[in-house]
Design a protein around this nucleic acid. Structure first.
Lengths: 162, 162
DNA sequence: CAAGATTGAGCCCTCAATCTTA
DNA sequence: TAAGATTGAGGGCTCAATCTTG
């Protein structure tokens, strides 16, 4: 009987499944999103988070944290989104160091028109594969992990508007 | 009572939890892996997959698929791993177009010395947060998703050695 | 021509340094 | 001095084109 090697540890298997499920899903969804709406997952993620926020705006720092991006990386993403007309920067009156990223009307239309098809895709590749019970259990488990390792994700509400 | 907007759809929430749990975990584990062993998650992933394979080798194409990388991307990763002495290329005698990536003895020592601490990290950030039952359920759910969207992941056994 | 692997060009991200404001 | 945002330099990936072998 063969010895179990550490490289076959079952914990690696579970982690591997998480990584692979995530990677596969992101790949498939981004391909579809790109062809259907011309949006990358990164752009979609930015615009979706802005759309969900009061006033459709978020501080650059908060948005960067939500996207697991450095503030440097976010600066460049917002540069491109601004050039495309989907987002614009707004200065923060009460703290002149900071700025907001705000969804433009064009950006709001864009995300809203892209959303229905994206939800269909999400159903097809992910949601519909699971039973109601599996979905609830999965959400609970993922939330535990997320809360433990995702520092600023969606926990922080948006700052008080200034 | 407020209308539910599509941007608040619960399916987006579940998908977002998957993305955020994954991103948070990768970030945390890669930081630790880097400081403890000087390995990136990419290098670790390559070496782990080679270590798990018969003969500690894999065809470049198969390895690329397992890592969700283009063959172009894998070529460059293996270039760097070869330069570090952890991996070497071997030509395939029966099909001279192809080549193998093979773990060197140095690479094998490296991954084996990095593994115990990495497993501890994995426990701390992920595995130990869940009950046995939650782990089993999570594995089942993730496997369904993975199998649906991860084309060549770990499904294909390695090709017959030539 | 198709398949496996590599190369050149270009994109997007990070790290470290910088500038401005609190 | 610290915090927020930006910029320059550099790394790693993808896409498209190329080379070799089947």
């Amino acid at each position: 009987m063969a010895m179990a090697s550490p490289v076959d540890d079952e914990r690696l298997t579970l982690a591997g499944l998480l990584f692979e499920a995530n990677a596969g899903l992101v790949n498939e969804l981004s391909k579809r999103l790109e062809t259907e709406s011309g949006l990358s997952t990164q752009w979609f993620g930015v615009m979706l988070r802005l759309a969900r926020s009061p006033g459709q705006r978020l501080r650059m720092t908060d948005l960067a944290a939500q996207l697991t991006l450095t503030s440097s990386g976010l600066t460049r993403v917002v540069d491109r989104l601004e050039e495309a007309g989907y987002v614009r920067r707004e200065t923060c009156p009460s703290d002149r160091r900071g700025s907001y990223a705000a969804l433009t009307p064009s950006g709001k239309r864009k995300i809203e028109s892209a959303l229905p098809k994206h939800l269909d895709d999400l159903d097809e590749c992910f949601i519909s594969l699971l039973t109601d019970r599996e979905r609830r259990d999965l959400e609970k488990a993922l939330r535990k992990v997320r809360d433990a390792v995702y520092p600023q994700g969606l926990v922080n509400g948006p700052r008080a508007a200034c």
